[in-house]
Structure formats: structure tokens, C-alpha cells
């Protein structure tokens, strides 16, 4: 089976007044394969949410795609007429749960109106009754309470809201679900329930693959098949979950993994060091490898030229040490 979604050398910049550009996504090439959970990891400001917005076609000015392409289902998504994208791609092929989606529910309307709006947006001929019936059937299938449809958002817990939004966003059985920080701001028990729901959606083949965007690597350890690590608008390392979590190669991935505080023995047995310094300003990123100012293993090359990708098996690393 072909890849479900491919980004080729994608560049998306925020254009501010006075011609200033923030190079939030700067040359990313990445594919989402069938039947996988692809984790996209990185710290705040690394461009992971921007990437999510572009590949789900939900980006808006001042964010502009400068270069590159996104292909899915045989379409060149970025050049597809808006109307066609809305009818044939969004909701049906690619669905997105943006960051903080659960708090974006209209507080004055019952949750079912969200389902109706969302379905009629992509399938204008659907009646309200059909939309509600479809939503109810899906909730039953996933053993979630039907009452959420007649509830107002404030009557539901955070975890329940988030699960509802995910279920309603996937009513049209999209192949791809893009979930941006779907569990942040939730208690650990609700977090686990959301993860369980996502896995059920995959098992029941309601969706085929997930792009899971998060800053929490221990969470990706639980769900991801592959992980892509971003730093300052670029990918630094992509590989299988085991490769990234247990044998990271890129100095940034290593340092990031090393600064994870999990309740496990190794954390208390030694002093953990974070990464000194701060990520670069994406208005004016450093030359060469973008991580070089904070890298403890940098060599002269790193400051001058961007490292080309090096692929071995399933893993690709952008680091001069690999060459």
C-alpha cells in the first residue's frame, strides 16, 4: 500500500509586518504510512503544530506555505481548489483534532450541534437527523455514553470532551487522523482513556493511521510505531519508536531523551542534565545545523553547512556525525 500522506521539502513561514519571516517549518520531508502511529515530537516552537496545520490544510495567514508539496490520495493538496479540498479531503480523507480542541466547543450549544456542523460542512446534503443518528451509532460502537450529544460542553469532564471531539471528528472514517497534543492538560487517567480510544479507532479500522503530535516522549513510547523528532523547524531524526527512544543517534534526541523525568529508578540514580541554552530565534536561525549552538558534540562542519540526511534502514538522521 502507498503512503497515506507525504510532505516533500515543505516550507511554511509566518509572515509578519515589515517583511519579517518566522521559518516555523523549513524543509520537512516526511511520510505517513498505512497502519501506523507516527509520533511527531519536539519542544514548544519547534514547528510541530505548524506542520500539523499545513498537512491538515487548516493553516491560515499569516502562516504561508513557501515551498514544497503535500500529496495524499493522489492529490497535490496545497494546489487543490479550496472547495474541492473541503468536499473530498477534509473530514473524509484527513481529519484533524487541533490543539485545545476540547475547549473550542461552543459553550452555548449542545455537543450534537458540533457533529451536525462538522458533517454538513463536508457533506452538505446530510440532514440533521442523519448526522445525529450517525454520531449516536458511532458512540455506541465505541461504548461511549450517548448522552454526551445532548450535553453542553461544561457538563462533561475534560477527558470526556476530548474523546467526544475525537469521535465526532472521525465520523466520516478518514484514513488519516492528525492529533495535535490530544492529551495535554488532561489528568493521567483521562490521558490514558484518550489513548485507548485512539487505539480502538485504529483497531476497528475506522481510521488507518495517526499523526500524533506531542512534546511528551514517554507517551510516544506507549503509542507510536515511528517517531519524527523536530528541532527549530527541521527534522533531526526519524526512526522506529525503539530506535528513537532506546538508541537515539542525534545529539538533540539523545539530550531530550536524557532529560525526561519518568518515575523510574534510573532517574534517581544519577543527576540528570537538561540542555543548556535556548532554541534559536526562527526569524534568523543559525547557519549549518540548527542545533549546533547547544550541541556538545559539534564539529567544525556543523557551524557551516546543513547536515544532509543519512538513512540506514528505517532511520534517517540529519547530523554530520553520521557521515
Amino acid at each position: 500500500m502507498k503512503n497515506l500522506l507525504e510532505a516533500q521539502n515543505l516550507k511554511a513561514y509566518y509572515r509578519l509586518v515589515d517583511g519579517i519571516q518566522i521559518r516555523a517549518v523549513d524543509g520537512v520531508t516526511l511520510e505517513l504510512r498505512p497502519n501506523e502511529v507516527l509520533g511527531i515530537a519536539g519542544e514548544s516552537g519547534c514547528g510541530k503544530s505548524t506542520l500539523a496545520a499545513v498537512i491538515s490544510l487548516t493553516h491560515n495567514p499569516p502562516l504561508h506555505v513557501i515551498d514544497g508539496e503535500v500529496t495524499a490520495n493522489g492529490f497535490d493538496l496545497l494546489r487543490l481548489p479550496k472547495e474541492q479540498a473541503r468536499r473530498e479531503i477534509k473530514g473524509k480523507y484527513i481529519s484533524v483534532v487541533p490543539q485545545g480542541a476540547m475547549n473550542a466547543l461552543n459553550p452555548t450549544q449542545r455537543v450534537r450541534n458540533f457533529a451536525i456542523d462538522m458533517l454538513q460542512e463536508h457533506q452538505p446534503d446530510m440532514t440533521k437527523q442523519d448526522a445525529v443518528d450517525l454520531a449516536r451509532a458511532r458512540l455506541q460502537e465505541l461504548s461511549l455514553p450517548e448522552r454526551v450529544l445532548t450535553s453542553y460542553p461544561h457538563e462533561l469532564s475534560g477527558g470526556m470532551k476530548q474523546r467526544t471531539v475525537i469521535v465526532l471528528s472521525t465520523l466520516l472514517n478518514p484514513k488519516v487522523l492528525i492529533a495535535d497534543e490530544p492529551t495535554s492538560a488532561l489528568d493521567v487517567s483521562s490521558q490514558r482513556a484518550v489513548i485507548r480510544l485512539l487505539m480502538t479507532l485504529l483497531d476497528e479500522q475506522i481510521i488507518t493511521s495517526i499523526a500524533f503530535i506531542t512534546h511528551e516522549l514517554p507517551l510516544l513510547r506507549q503509542v507510536a510505531d515511528r517517531i519524527a523528532v523536530m528541532y527549530a523547524g527541521k527534522l533531526v531524526e526519524v526512526g522506529t519508536m525503539e530506535e528513537i527512544i532506546f538508541q537515539p543517534q542525534h545529539p538533540y534526541t539523545k539530550a531530550l531523551m536524557g532529560s525526561m523525568l519518568v518515575p523510574e529508578r534510573h532517574v534517581r540514580e544519577q543527576r540528570i542534565e537538561g540542555i543548556p541554552g535556548v532554541p534559536p530565534d526562527l526569524k534568523n536561525p543559525p547557519a549549518g545545523c540548527r542545533f549546533h549552538p547547544r550541541c556538545t558534540q559539534r564539529i567544525e562542519w556543523c557551524t557551516q553547512e546543513e547536515p544532509p540526511p543519512k538513512t540506514v534502514g528505517d532511520r534517517t538522521t540529519w547530523c554530520w556525525l553520521m557521515h
Partner: peptide, 13 residues
């Protein structure tokens, strides 16, 4: 503790 994601174990989901 069971619901906190760790590195050593993968959840049975």
C-alpha cells in the same frame, strides 16, 4: 502510577 507513561513498559491497551 499505572497511568503514567514510562519508558520501560508499554501499556497494554
Amino acid at each position: 502510577l499505572a497511568d503514567v507513561p514510562t519508558l520501560s513498559k508499554r501499556w497494554a491497551l
